[in-house]
Write a protein that binds this DNA or RNA. Structure first.
Length: 249
DNA sequence: TCCCTTCTGTGGTATACAAT
DNA sequence: ATTGTATACCACAGAAGGGA
């Protein structure tokens, strides 16, 4: 990636983080990056995998998740703090991305006992399998591996699995379509007083056709960096040594 | 009282395509 | 490489209604 583009995108993301509660438009962000809004949208998409609007929305919802779990602020106030003027819109967007309503998420303290998978699709009998590689210079705890339509872990995964650590994963009966493989885990050993280091991995898209037995997709775990959109979907607590798979694959 | 869901009109955004 | 146009789509605000 071009260094100028990289800096522009980093600046835009910093602007988003610093102004979550304000009304930010593509024009504002493009101006800060000194690109036309058209060019800005394209380079941003290339760098992060998400359009600026979706990335900003993801940051807002991630901050809302944090506030719900760590504070007692009302849902209405949180909605306002993270930039929504309408609690209805906030609640709908939060539920759609996280998998639980704001109060439901707060009651669960941010840890999901279950994850819904996409239903109602014709059975493809296609498996997606592969290897989750350990991050460079470290091991990992339990790994969430899910199939999503976009480069962000939000909404309903087409299929998912939680494997005990780096190694093989298999997802069976994957619905027809094009899916990104997103992995999420924590480093096995806490790096500092902030706790275990979050790890991420992205591969694909893998296109599942009828009549193909299996697709092989490997995923490499690495430390999260600033260009990675947050994980919005509520997951089981991957920091625990034992994670039971809530739904059989 | 607080929150969630659902609905509708509106405006911004995403993106294919064209131009420079 | 960068900017602009056209247009379909989606996220938004705001309101109504209902549940706890």
């Amino acid at each position: 990636m071009d260094e100028i583009v990289r800096q522009a995108v980093a600046r835009a993301i910093m602007t988003m983080r610093d102004n979550l509660g304000d009304r930010l438009t593509i024009d504002d962000l493009a101006r800060a990056a000194m690109f036309s809004k058209f060019h800005f949208t394209r380079v941003f998409l290339r760098a992060t995998g998400l359009s600026p609007g979706r990335f900003l929305s993801a940051l807002r919802l991630a901050e809302a998740k944090r506030l719900l779990v760590t504070t007692g602020i009302s849902v209405a106030d949180i909605s306002h703090q993270v930039g929504y003027n309408s609690v209805g819109t906030f609640s709908a967007r939060f539920s759609g991305s996280v998998g639980f309503s704001p109060t439901g998420y707060r009651q669960l303290r941010g840890m999901s006992p279950r994850i819904a998978e996409r239903t109602g699709q014709p059975e493809s009998e296609v498996a997606v399998r592969g290897h989750v590689w350990r991050p460079p210079g470290g091991d990992t705890g339990p790994v969430f591996v899910g199939l999503f339509p976009a480069k962000i872990a939000e909404g309903t995964p087409a299929r998912y699995a939680i494997v005990p650590g780096a190694g093989q994963y298999t997802l069976t009966d994957v619905p027809l379509g094009s899916w990104y493989v997103i992995a999420h885990a924590y480093g096995a050993i806490p790096q500092d007083d902030r706790g275990p280091r979050p790890l991420t991995g992205l591969a694909g898209p893998v296109t599942v056709h009828r009549g193909v037995a299996a697709s092989l997709v490997d995923v490499r775990l690495r430390p999260r960096h600033g260009f990675d959109p947050p994980v919005l979907l509520a997951l089981p607590d991957l920091r625990q040594a034992q994670v039971r798979r809530p739904v059989a694959v």
